[in-house]
Every structure is written in C-alpha cells, then in structure tokens.
Design a protein around this nucleic acid. Sequence first.
RNA 1: GGUGUCGUGGCCGAGUGGCUAGGCUCAGCUCUGCAAAAGCUGCUACAGCGGUUCGAAUCCGCUCGACACCUCCA
Length: 493
Amino acid sequence: MQLFKHQPIKIYNSLSGTKETFKPINEGYVGMYVCGPTVYSNVHLGNVRTFMSFDMIFRYLKHVGYKVRYVRNITDAGHLENDADAGEDKITKKARLEQIEPMEIVQRYTVDFHNILNTFNFLPPSIEPTATGHIIEQIELIKDILNNGFAYQVNGSVYFDVHKFNETHDYGILSKRKLEDLIHNTRELDGQGDKKNPQDFALWKKAEPQHIMRWPSPWGDGFPGWHLECTAMSTKYLGDQFDIHGGGMDLKFPHHECEIAQNEAAKGQSPVNYWMHANMLELNGQRMSKSTGNTVNPDELLSGNNKFFSKAFAPSVIRFFMAQAHYRSVLDLTDDGLIASEKGFFRLMDAINLLDGLKASETSSVDINTWKQKCYDAMNDDFNSPILIANLFEAAKYINQVKEGSETLTKEDAALLKTTLHAFLFDVLGLENVTKKESGQDKLSGAVNVLIKLRQEARANKDFAMSDKIRDELAEAGILLKDGKEGTTFSLL
RNA sequence: GGUGUCGUGGCCGAGUGGCUAGGCUCAGCUCUGCAAAAGCUGCUACAGCGGUUCGAAUCCGCUCGACACCUCCA
C-alpha cells in the first residue's frame, strides 16, 4: 500500500529552519540515519525520548508504505572526554573504574540499551553498525579529506582544518554559527596542543601507550575522532547523499555541523537533505543531570523505585506521555504529568476494547473517513503526535457515545474505525494494549465474571451489602467493576 | 558574552492572522439501589509594554523570564 502517494509529509528541516514537503531521493524509499548512544553507562530517559521520537517517525514512514532503511549506530570506540590531547576516553575511564576490559563495558551497556528499548516496544533499526566495526572506512575517509586539503597531520594525529574549509564552504550552515563568532567565543581550553586553531577537530588521535582502544593507521596507532564514525557509517549504508539524519538537539553543534563539513570535504557534497532534531527531556523543570542528582533511569521509572515519582508506570504509559508532546518541544517529566497521561491512556484503551461489542446500525452518524484523514493530516504535519492523539480521543468519545446510544455506526464504519485506531495506536505510536489480556478469554476474566454474576444475583435480591462487598473487595484487589446498560465489565487498576 | 528555541487557562500540552486542539483536575446534571464508568454542560487562556492591521495569542520592536548549545552529552 503506497499511501505516501496521497499523504504528503511535511518535515521541519533544521537546515532551512522551515517545514518542507518531504521528497525522498528515490521514490518509495527512505534512508534515515540517527546518531545512537555512546555505550559507557546505562541509557537515560533523555536518550529514550530522542530514540522514541525517531522510532515513531520510522513507524509512520513504514506505515504510509515507504521502504525505510533506518540506520542507528552504536558508539563504542571511546572518544575523549574533551578535545584536549590529554585525558582518558569515557569507555576506558569506566573500564578502569570497574576494572574490566573496555569491550566488556561496551557489551554490558549495549545489552542494557537493547533491553530498555525492547521494554519500550521499539522497532529494531534496519542496521545497527558500530564505530569499532568501521575503522577501515573511517581511515579511508581521513585519506580523502587529507587528499582534498582539508586536514593536516601532526604527531600521529590528524585534524580537520576548519578555517581552510570555511574559505570555500560554509562551516556553521546547520547551527547558524559564523566561524568568526566561534573564534571570538572559544573559551581557553587546556592542551589544545597540536591543533592549528581551537575550532579544528580531530579526525584521528594518536593513542598514548596506556590507551587500550587503539588501531593501526597510516599515521600510527590511534583511534578515530568522534564525528567521523557517523559520516563513515551513514554514507556506507545510505549513500553519499541520503534523505533524513536525526539526533538530539544537543548534537546539532558541533557533531552534526562537523558531519556536514567532513562529507563536503571528503565527497564534495552535503550528505543530508532533511536534518531533524529532537528536543530535550527535563525532570521537574530542570535538565537531567547526573552530577546534580536530577536524573532517573528508565528502569527506576518503570519499577517506581525512585524518589521523584509516586508510583511505577507501564512502558506504554511513558510512551504515551512522550507522544503527547511534539518531538521538537522540550518536555518536562513530572509525576502529575505521568499520572494525567496514564488516566487518559487507559480511557483510550478502554474505549478500544469496547469496539468489538458495539451494536451495528443501518447508518453512521459520524463521518469516519473524515476523521481518519484528520489523523493522517496530524502525522503528515511534521509528525504531530499530540494532534493525532487528540483525534484518537475523539474516536474514543464516538465509541462511548455509540455504546450509550447517542451516536450510531455501521458495521463497515466500525471496522474502519477499528483498523485505523489499531494502526495509529499500535503500529505508529508503538503502544501496547495493556488491558487487552485482562478483558480477553483468560482465566482471570472467567473468575471475575463468576463474581460479577454473583453480584448481579445479590443485587436482584436487594442484598446490597453483599453486592457492595463483592465490588469493594474486587476494587481493593485492583479490579474495577463498571456497570453499563449492556451489563457489567471490568478493568484492572 | 555569542547563537538559537521558547514563555498558552488550576496542571500538562497543541495550534492558527479573524471560525477560540486534546488530556488531567474542578463544579453541575443524566444514568445508577448507592457508587464507579460513560455521556452532557460549565470554567475561554495565550509573560509585559508598544507598533503594523479592519482584526493578533498568532507579524514587528523592546522589556522581563526560562531553556538549550557555544566543552563530553539524545
């Protein structure tokens, strides 16, 4: 189904600062690259939000029929903590602290990353390349950049010559910075060492003898610069020029700026047509930061084992909460916010679960096709999931109204409503119907139905003491009874 | 200091030059043996001050405030 032919998508392009109609290089195919995590510690929720935004975008592009190659890398090469010549890289530092091999650190936190993402129902990317697996490609790139005169070699290291590059190209085109401003505003850093100018960045760094993560190169043993791996891996799998490159807002400068510069220097063309940047996640109005303690891990949020939140939240509730904000807005994670989202989420799910039991009518009093297009319009407008969700709540209202008898649906419209809702909730937003199991044919539901029947009998006999006892004690056990015109149903929590 | 983003009702969070998302909360009503759930109704906001306009929360300027980046960071 090539829905995309009728559903033109607009994407906010950070490069132009405007929303542009998305036109892939090859019709029907999309190449998308997203900067993945550096695996030196547990993923934090900010990472999760960024990757979740792109997971949703990946899902929607697939939903409208694009064949998407989604590449998200793992940074495992161990870059320096700062651009100075001295100092350990993050992975080595962690390895020393934990007294294990750097590659053990990489393995441990890569596994953690995958576990967390699976818990949140992420789709795996099409390709998940690692920096250490692409050293040769990175070395080749450096050779190209050197040959084209945009880099220089000093003491076993190779640096990108930003000033030289800026003479013929525009360094700062993405982040809207001017090189001269950067020159004036660069802080005094220690150990700028071999660099001709502080704005230059490393393509290859010489490894000191104690440096464990090292590879041979034409310039001696060393390791690649941070910005280089993304250029190497994105172009290897997506071509010298590809459709979408995403990442967190904080990577815009210098990381993405440097990627553009590297690609132009090596291959003579700008690599990416649409740059997308996801905004930051805050915790109680403050930036999440390990140093100030204003941080919470995904598993702490899921388990409720933390000092910021009053209870545990299901992965889908957190997903839903995040989808209620636009990916380009700052989102503040709060207890109240999550609780409000949780209630809304379950209301939505309860409505979905009513769909199969609805009575069909001869005519429909609501226009499902118009509603459906509004859902697409929302996502087509730079993936506006909050608007989409507003429309999904409208659908939930229809469903409840049909159940009440104030609106009607034909069998066909009910089916269309159902497939559309499922597509957006589960395929696009990646949510999971956490109440589905309970309302199904399982043993719990059989047992609860027996109690519901007993309660009905008690009520028929006006034995309200007994009927209320059943209801209240079930409630205490976390099972909520809901009396309706068509009988009693229940839900958990 | 520089660059950029933003400041929306009790809270969260969309959005557009005029027709005033959505969720949560709150109040009233309907339904109910009573509740709960659901439905209906109400609460009408856009930091402040100027300007452009027939008309601005939406465009421009200034002020105040917040955040991000400029240094590893999703």
